Simulated assay, not measured.
Amino acid sequence: MADSGQALSERAEQAMRLAVSAGRKLGLRAHEPRVLHDVFNVLVHLAPDPVVVRVPILALAPATEQAERQRRELALVGWLADQGAPVVPPSPLVPREPMESGGTSLTFWQYVDERDPIAAAPPDALEERFVEQTGWVAELHRIMAGYPGELPVLAPLVPGTAQSLAVLGKRPGILTTADLDRAERENAVVEALVRDLPRAFPGARPQAVHGDSPPYNVLLTAGGHLFSDFEDATLGPVEWDLAGAGPRAVEAYERAGGGPVDRSLLAFMEGARLLQAVAALALAERMPELAGMLEPLVVQWRAWPSLELPHS
Rank of each mutant, 00 (worst) to 15 (best):
71 R>V: 02
39 V>W: 14
52 V>E: 12
9 S>C: 08
102 G>E: 08
64 T>W: 01
45 H>Y: 05
87 V>C: 08
19 A>N: 04
96 R>S: 07
51 V>H: 11
25 K>F: 05
32 E>T: 12
46 L>F: 11
32 E>I: 03
98 P>Q: 01
43 L>V: 00
91 S>C: 12
45 H>N: 12
78 G>I: 10
69 R>E: 06
97 E>T: 13
72 R>A: 13
89 P>L: 13
15 A>R: 01
68 E>M: 07
64 T>C: 04
70 Q>P: 00
25 K>I: 01
11 R>D: 13
68 E>W: 00
47 A>H: 13
62 P>M: 09
54 R>V: 01
75 A>Y: 01
62 P>C: 10
40 F>D: 09
16 M>A: 09
8 L>G: 09
42 V>H: 01
72 R>G: 09
37 H>M: 00
21 S>M: 11
99 M>A: 15
90 P>A: 13
78 G>C: 11
38 D>F: 00
80 L>E: 09
43 L>N: 01
101 S>V: 08
91 S>T: 03
92 P>N: 02
24 R>Y: 07
23 G>P: 04
13 E>S: 13
14 Q>A: 15
83 Q>E: 15
61 A>F: 02
53 V>L: 08
61 A>L: 15
46 L>A: 02
56 P>G: 11
33 P>I: 15
95 P>C: 04
16 M>N: 02
67 A>S: 13
51 V>T: 11
35 V>W: 00
38 D>N: 08
48 P>I: 11
59 A>L: 00
42 V>T: 12
69 R>D: 00
14 Q>E: 14
28 L>R: 06
68 E>Q: 12
73 E>V: 00
99 M>P: 00
34 R>Q: 12
76 L>G: 09
51 V>F: 05
12 A>M: 04
78 G>Q: 06
13 E>F: 01
32 E>N: 14
45 H>A: 15
31 H>T: 14
24 R>Q: 15
77 V>A: 11
34 R>Y: 03
39 V>A: 12
89 P>D: 14
40 F>L: 14
81 A>Q: 10
57 I>Q: 05
28 L>N: 04
43 L>W: 11
74 L>S: 04
65 E>N: 03
25 K>E: 15
102 G>K: 08
102 G>I: 13
25 K>A: 14
81 A>I: 05
9 S>G: 14
95 P>G: 06
24 R>V: 07
66 Q>F: 03
20 V>W: 04
85 A>E: 09
83 Q>G: 08
83 Q>S: 12
14 Q>R: 15
74 L>P: 00
73 E>G: 01
99 M>G: 07
96 R>M: 12
22 A>Y: 05
64 T>H: 12
32 E>C: 06
31 H>L: 14
86 P>G: 11
45 H>T: 03
62 P>S: 11
87 V>I: 05
102 G>F: 07
49 D>N: 08
88 V>L: 14
9 S>K: 07
94 V>E: 01
32 E>Q: 14
59 A>N: 10
50 P>F: 10
96 R>F: 00
92 P>M: 09
84 G>S: 06
46 L>N: 07
98 P>Y: 02
43 L>I: 03
58 L>C: 09
20 V>M: 05
42 V>G: 08
12 A>Q: 05
41 N>F: 07
28 L>I: 10
57 I>S: 07
102 G>S: 08
